[in-house]
Each structure stands twice: as structure tokens, then as C-alpha cells.
Measured scan of single mutants.
Amino acid sequence: MTYKAILNGKTLKGETTTEAVDAATAEKVFKQYANDNGVDGEWTYDDATKTFTVTE
């Protein structure tokens, strides 16, 4: 399944996708990606669109 992350960081804005077996696995991948890029904020998840959003 393909999951998407939308990054609304102070220094990084954009989107990325990952293939994962479930939302929990995708969330770990996206949170690591955000952390590696200095983005730390509030996370939300929309199951209907399989989209995570982080906003700083």
C-alpha cells in the first residue's frame, strides 16, 4: 500500500511517499524522515487518503 506524507516544516516543505504494509509502519518511516530533515511538529493522519501531515 502506498502512503503519503505532507511536510509543512519551517525549513522543509514538500511531499514524499512510501510503500508499507500498514499505517503504523509508514508512520515510523515518515517520522524518521522528518527527524532526519529537522522537522518536528504536530502529526495527523487521514485514513481515507492514506496521508500523514506534519506541521511545525
Rank of each mutant, 00 (worst) to 15 (best):
N8I: 14
L7E: 03
D22E: 04
V29W: 14
T49C: 05
W43C: 04
G38Y: 06
V54C: 13
A26C: 03
G41R: 01
A23F: 12
T44L: 07
K50I: 02
T49N: 08
D36E: 13
K31H: 09
G38V: 03
K13L: 07
K28G: 09
D46T: 04
T53C: 09
D47E: 14
T2V: 13
F52R: 00
E27N: 04
K50M: 09
N8G: 04
N35D: 11
G38E: 06
T25M: 11
T2K: 10
T17P: 01
T11Q: 11
T11G: 12
K10E: 08
M1R: 12
G9S: 09
V21T: 11
W43D: 01
V29L: 10
F52G: 00
Q32H: 06
G14T: 14
D22G: 04
G9W: 06
K10R: 11
T16Q: 09
A48D: 12
A23P: 11
A26N: 01
T51S: 05
E56I: 08
V39H: 04
K28H: 08
T53I: 09
W43Q: 00
F30G: 00
V54S: 02
G14A: 14
M1C: 12
E42T: 13
V39N: 03
L7Y: 13
Y33D: 01
T2L: 13
D40F: 15
E15N: 06
Y45P: 00
K50N: 08
F52S: 01
T11A: 10
V21E: 12
G9M: 10
G14V: 14
T11P: 04
T55P: 01
D22S: 07
E19Y: 15
Y3I: 01
T55H: 07
K10P: 10
Y33K: 03
T51Y: 01
V21C: 13
G9L: 14
G38Q: 07
E27A: 10
T16A: 12
T18A: 08
T49Q: 07
L7W: 15
A26D: 01
T51N: 02
T44Y: 11
T2C: 13
T17G: 03
G38M: 07
V29M: 10
Y33H: 04
F30Y: 00
A23N: 06
Y45N: 00
T25A: 14
T17D: 05
K31N: 03
A23D: 05
A20C: 09
W43F: 05
F30W: 01
T2H: 08
T16V: 15
A24Y: 09
K4W: 09
E19W: 15
E15K: 06
T53S: 05
A24Q: 12
T53N: 06
D22F: 03
Y45R: 00
Y33E: 03
A20T: 05
Y3C: 04
G41E: 00
T25R: 06
T44P: 00
E27Y: 15
T25W: 07
F30Q: 00
Y45D: 00
A34E: 00
D40W: 14
D36V: 08
T2Q: 10
A48C: 11
G14H: 12
G9F: 14
Y33V: 05
A23R: 12
G14P: 03
K28A: 13
Q32D: 07
D40I: 14
A20M: 02
V21I: 13
F52H: 00
K31M: 09
K4R: 12
E56G: 05
N8Q: 08
A20I: 01
K4Y: 14
G14N: 07
K13P: 04
T55E: 06
D36Y: 08
E42K: 10
E42S: 10
V29K: 08
T16S: 08
K10N: 11
A26Q: 01
V21W: 12
T49R: 06
K13R: 12
K28L: 12
D22V: 02
D22Y: 02
G38N: 09
A26W: 00
T2P: 06
T11C: 14
Y33P: 00
K28V: 10
V21S: 12
A24L: 10
E15Q: 11
D47P: 14
E56D: 07
K31A: 05
T55C: 08
N37D: 03
E27Q: 12
Y33G: 02
T25N: 07
T25G: 08
V29F: 15
T44M: 09
N37I: 14
Y45H: 01
G9T: 15
Y33S: 01
A20V: 04
E27C: 14
L7S: 02
V21Y: 12
Y3E: 03
F52W: 07
W43L: 03
Y33F: 11
A24M: 12
Y33T: 03
K31P: 01
L7M: 09
T55S: 10
E42M: 12
T53K: 05
Y3H: 03
V29N: 07
L7D: 02
A23I: 09
A48M: 11
V54P: 01
N8C: 12
T16C: 15
D47T: 09
Q32C: 06
V39G: 03
G38T: 03
E19I: 15
N8R: 09
T18I: 14
K4Q: 05
L12Q: 08
K4S: 06
G41S: 02
D36N: 08
D40Y: 15
E56H: 06
K10M: 12
I6T: 05
F52M: 01
A26L: 00
T51R: 02
E42D: 11
I6C: 06
N35G: 09
E15V: 13
A20L: 02
D36C: 08
D46S: 05
A34G: 03
E27M: 14
E19V: 15
Y45W: 03
T16I: 15
Y45L: 02
N35P: 01
D22T: 05
T51M: 03
F52Y: 05
E56R: 01
Y45T: 00
V21F: 12
T17V: 10
V39E: 03
E15C: 14
E19N: 13
T55K: 07
G9P: 03
E56T: 06
N35I: 15
T11N: 13
G9E: 03
T44F: 10
